[in-house]
Design a protein around this nucleic acid. Structure first.
Length: 629
DNA sequence: ACGCGAAGGACCC
DNA sequence: AGCCAGGGTCCTTCGCTT
């Protein structure tokens, strides 16, 4: 039953749910008493419904591992063949390796906690976390010493650290700060990609190019206390009524390097930054700190995947640059634990660990096997990671795909109560949808019972909905179906959520009318980065036309898919207004969502770049598929 | 063989 | 006292229609 060939599998303590154990993967948790912390976590959780559910899921993963290990008995020939395949692809990927970009990942340090500490000096020397008794969003570094961290329920955190101060989240405030730092990001890459309020990817390549010819004056940044600003700063600093405190950032950690230490009298103090990427990034972080009194960490690397890992390396308040050479990349990736890679979570880590894989070099060594055990997308991703590859350009920000709202509460079994809650959720959601002028055809109801089992029930309509009543009509139906399903037993809920997706690009959403080629050519940025966009376009296109069969194929498909969807969305745009007076919802509405549009712009094939005269989407799709083959 | 909708999960912050 | 969030994206699998 347990074939732990290399002692990698069960951590002997049966009943120990590894899913629940402390996750000391992240920064700020070096050298703390893991065993003691895990013991407390376990004791506090034991016997709870949550714990039971985690146990169940853990066992499911274990079964998955069993099945995988069964399959591992693969013939040598198969493995050889797979190995050859892998090697071919490695060669191909190697050829496409792009080390010319300077991708930066910026990440604010303990963001929410840092903001709260900044605004409440009493908190600075106390272990604190942001969130509630039931869930913490993040903790400061003092609290992390106790094992208190994000995604940990507050009541457990209190056991670990009785003096922990828990501050409720204040999203509006974080959003405001986020806007401030994003203004700075724009100066370095107007096409930057926000990941969350406190995190973003930037492409510094062009900024650094320009920077080479900049005079010192443009690279001079003043400390906060001064009221005048340097050239590029354009008076942004002025409007922030400085509290005048000479000591700026909150004390996040005892040994804070305090980057502002080199000039004691913050009067007219300034700093001149160099022209390298590192200097540029340092400057950006400096500006963030001056502007917000909060620190950020950053990673610099040839692609997004690596940049993300790098930003964690010298956190907090630090940065790390991975040189753009194949050697440096391979060395960096060699001992990198797979878990550090974004996208590899607890489950993947465990699955891989069962195969004796914990570092990225292991990943490379066992690639042939992985290609036989995992789905194509999965092992392709693994392969990329093992080679230190990732996206060398930052994708244009895409439209949102769904919008939802959900709420957790204490057990709720009464039908009327559930209905009124459902209605409330629909109202909230409708409100949010309205803010972005969105209408979607799919409504999804999410339910979590008191045993933490989650269910989703969805229905797709032939027309888009947006108002509370429209959504509620569907949602309450889904709820009723589910209730009937459980027949005599009531639904004992602890969470309910409503989601709307399958958006039909709502009319007045201005430009999006562009043809596909327009979309391609414009890339993500506007005029400013036109040459880059063009270059990017060419790159992508050559990648597409190289009729290589393996890895890039996946890209092509995904890409073509997106483009087809884009076209679909564009062609639907015209008749979006028709959804204003929908037929009454009666259970399964089954009309065909045909859209007999008039006068959509001629579609242009993204592959051959030839305009397709017929405006029939089906024909267009077939054409694109043809082009791909 | 495809495309799509539904349901369930993994993951991220 | 107190028993684990909420907002997303993407992937996989399955059943059905084309």
């Amino acid at each position: 039953l347990f074939r732990m060939e290399n002692g990698s599998l069960p951590p002997k303590t049966e009943g120990f749910v590894s899913r629940m154990a402390l996750n000391d993967n992240k920064a700020g948790m070096e050298g703390l008493d893991r065993d003691k912390i895990n013991k407390i976590i376990m004791e506090t959780s034991k016997g709870s419904k949550f714990y039971e559910n985690e146990l169940k899921r853990e066992q499911q993963v274990n079964q998955r591992i069993e099945m995988m290990l069964q399959k591992e008995q693969i013939t040598e020939q198969q493995l050889k063949k797979a190995q050859a395949q892998v090697e071919r692809m490695v060669a191909e990927l190697e050829e496409s390796r792009d080390l010319t970009r300077a991708i930066v990942h910026v990440d604010m340090d303990a963001f929410y906690a840092a903001v709260e500490m900044r605004d409440c000096p009493e908190l600075k020397d106390k272990p604190m976390a942001v969130g509630s008794m039931s869930m913490l969003s993040t903790s400061n570094y003092l609290a992390r010493k106790y094992g208190v961290r994000a995604a940990m329920p507050g009541f457990i955190a209190k056991k670990l650290c009785p003096h922990l101060v828990i501050v409720p989240t204040n999203f509006d405030k974080y959003r405001a700060v986020s806007n401030e730092i994003r203004e700075i990001f724009t100066d370095y890459d107007p096409g930057f990609m926000p990941v969350s309020l406190d995190e973003a990817y930037l492409d510094f390549t062009e900024h650094v190019e320009k920077r080479q010819s900049w005079p010192e004056s443009l690279r001079t940044r003043r400390y906060r206390a001064s009221t005048t600003t340097t050239g590029e700063e354009s008076g942004k600093l002025a409007q922030e009524a400085a509290p005048g405190t000479p000591d700026l950032s909150p004390v996040l950690f005892e040994d804070s390097p305090s980057s502002s230490s080199n000039s004691e009298d913050a009067g007219d103090a300034f700093e001149i930054f160099g022209t390298s990427v590192e200097e540029a990034v340092r400057e950006m972080r400096f500006r963030i700190e001056q502007k917000t009194m909060l620190t950020a960490s950053a990673g610099i690397a040839p692609n997004m995947m690596l940049a993300k890992v790098c930003s964690d390396k010298n956190k907090p308040n630090g940065q790390y640059r991975l040189p753009p050479t194949r050697e440096a990349v391979m060395e960096f990736v060699c001992d990198l634990p797979v878990r550090k890679v974004s996208g590899v979570g607890k489950v993947s880590e465990k699955l891989l660990s069962a195969l004796g894989i914990s570092s990225c070099s292991h990943l490379g060594q066992k690639m042939a096997l992985l290609s036989l055990l995992f789905s194509e997308t999965s092992w392709h991703h693994f392969l990329q990671v093992s080679l230190g590859l990732g996206s060398a350009f930052i994708p244009r920000h895409e439209e949102r795909k769904s919008m939802s709202t959900e709420r957790t509460f204490k057990e709720m079994s009464a039908v009327e109560e559930q209905l009124s809650l459902c209605h409330e959720l629909c109202e909230d959601l409708a409100n949010d949808l309205k803010k972005e002028g969105l209408k979607g055809k799919t409504v999804t109801l999410k339910l979590k019972n008191v045993n933490f089992e989650v269910k989703t029930r969805a229905l797709t309509l032939p027309y888009p909905v947006a108002t509370a009543d429209e959504i509620f009509t569907v949602a309450k139906d889904l709820l009723k179906t589910e209730r009937d399903n459980e027949s005599p037993q009531p639904l004992r809920l602890r969470l309910m959520g409503v989601r709307v997706s399958a958006f039909v690009s709502s009319d007045h959403k201005k430009p999006l009318q562009r043809s596909i080629v327009g979309f391609l050519n414009s890339g993500r940025g506007e005029s400013g980065s036109s040459q880059r966009a063009k270059q990017q376009h060419l790159k992508e296109n050559s990648q597409l036309s190289s009729s290589s069969q393996i890895w890039p194929l996946g890209c092509q498909r995904a890409r073509a898919k997106r483009l087809q969807l884009q076209a679909a969305a564009a062609s639907t745009t015209q008749q979006a207004g028709l959804g204003t007076s929908p037929p009454p919802v009666s259970g399964k509405t089954d009309a065909s969502g045909r859209c007999p549009d008039g006068g959509s712009p001629a579609l242009v094939c993204p592959i051959c770049l030839l305009s397709q005269d017929d405006d029939d989407l089906g024909m267009f799709n077939r054409h694109v598929d043809l082009c791909l083959n």
